[in-house]
Amino acid sequence: MQNFSASPQEMVVSLYRNRNLIGALIKREVIGRYRGSIMGILWSLLNPVFMLTVYTFVFSFVFKARWDGGSNSKAEFALVLFAGLMIFNIFSECVSRAPGLILSNVNYVKKVVFPLEILPWVAIGASLFHAFVSLMVWLVTYMAVYGVPHITVIFLPLIIIPLVFFIVGVSWALASLGVYLRDAGQFIGIVTTMLMFVSPIFYPVTALPEQYRKFLYMNPLTPAIEQIRDVLFWGKLPGFSLLAIYTLVSIIIACVGFACFQKTRKGFADVL
């Protein structure tokens, strides 16, 4: 039986070696999602516009919500809210699909020699494409209301890169688990819904009593959500110390997730 390297070096080498295949599969994933629809890929633009409108109406008009230190502007609330949603949507889209990545690509397991470890990269690549479209919608809206965006927007990659490593690590672990435990998909659906409401997406961290805020920061999405709002809307520099720790932890999670996937993949064909 073939042995698969679980080293961090192999994780990086595999990504580089299969970069063209990953790019092709991401393109197919994005186009395939809208194949057969009348408006096609235009839906990737309309979806964030629609969600931005709905969330703004519900939370700023119905619930009269506002951000601490901010104004009562509906546009401000919408933009700050949507910045946090972009982070959560990247996470939710990838992690929700992760338990079924191998199950939905059985032909890659049984019929051909295929680098299964790239499937989470493909999923997150497609998710990043949609996040990029959402970011363009965000920037256009910001410029229409406030003018030129803050220069701190250049630090956005420093926030996204560790998030990508964190998500891909979790995806590897869940993709492996999903093969052996079919209930994983149902469980992850519950967890992602819970994380949506225990993340500071619809409310600021300061909305919680101070003694409970430390629990909110245990949420792995909280640092990314807070940092993206700082660099995009508030014009603040990111917390470089926090980002350094977040990056280190994310890389460790990626290495552990990759190792779990590689150690268990030899049994995929038998189970499927």
Rank of each mutant, 00 (worst) to 15 (best):
Y34S: 13
P209Q: 11
F77E: 01
L52Q: 11
K214W: 07
M39N: 13
I160Y: 02
F114A: 08
I167Q: 06
S127M: 06
E210W: 08
F88H: 04
Y16V: 13
V112D: 12
S73L: 04
I225T: 11
I188Q: 03
P115R: 04
E210K: 13
I118L: 12
V112K: 13
D183F: 05
L128A: 12
F155N: 15
N89K: 02
N219K: 05
G69K: 02
Q227T: 14
Y34I: 14
V80C: 11
L195A: 12
Y212P: 06
M51N: 10
Y34G: 14
V179H: 02
T192S: 05
M196R: 02
G40S: 05
L181Y: 06
Y142W: 04
W43C: 13
W234E: 06
Y203C: 09
F91Q: 03
V106N: 10
N47K: 08
T192N: 08
A65I: 06
R17E: 09
F240Y: 12
T141C: 15
S60H: 15
T56W: 07
F202Q: 05
L45W: 14
A184W: 02
G189Q: 10
Q9D: 10
V80F: 12
Y212S: 12
I167F: 08
L15T: 06
A207V: 11
G235M: 09
K266T: 15
T193H: 00
V170L: 15
I31M: 14
C260E: 07
V256F: 00
L52H: 11
M39R: 07
P157A: 06
F215W: 14
P204A: 07
L208F: 15
G70T: 06
V271T: 07
L52C: 15
P223D: 04
L101P: 00
L232N: 03
P200Y: 09
N107F: 12
L163C: 00
F268M: 03
M86G: 12
F258T: 08
I124D: 00
A98R: 02
L135E: 04
G69F: 01
K27L: 07
S60A: 15
L25F: 13
N3D: 13
G189Y: 03
F50R: 08
V80S: 11
T247L: 15
T192E: 04
Y217S: 13
V145R: 00
G36C: 07
L242V: 13
T192F: 02
N105S: 09
R19K: 05
G169N: 04
F77I: 00
G70N: 00
V30F: 10
A144M: 05
L248H: 02
L174M: 07
F166W: 11
E76H: 09
L195H: 10
V256I: 11
N3L: 14
G84D: 00
N3G: 15
A144G: 06
E117R: 00
V170K: 01
L85D: 01
L46C: 14
P157I: 08
L46E: 12
P223Q: 02
I118P: 10
V49Q: 07
S7G: 00
I87T: 01
S7P: 08
R33C: 05
A78W: 02
M136T: 14
A6H: 12
V58N: 09
L216T: 13
L85G: 01
P238G: 14
R28I: 09
A78L: 12
P120A: 10
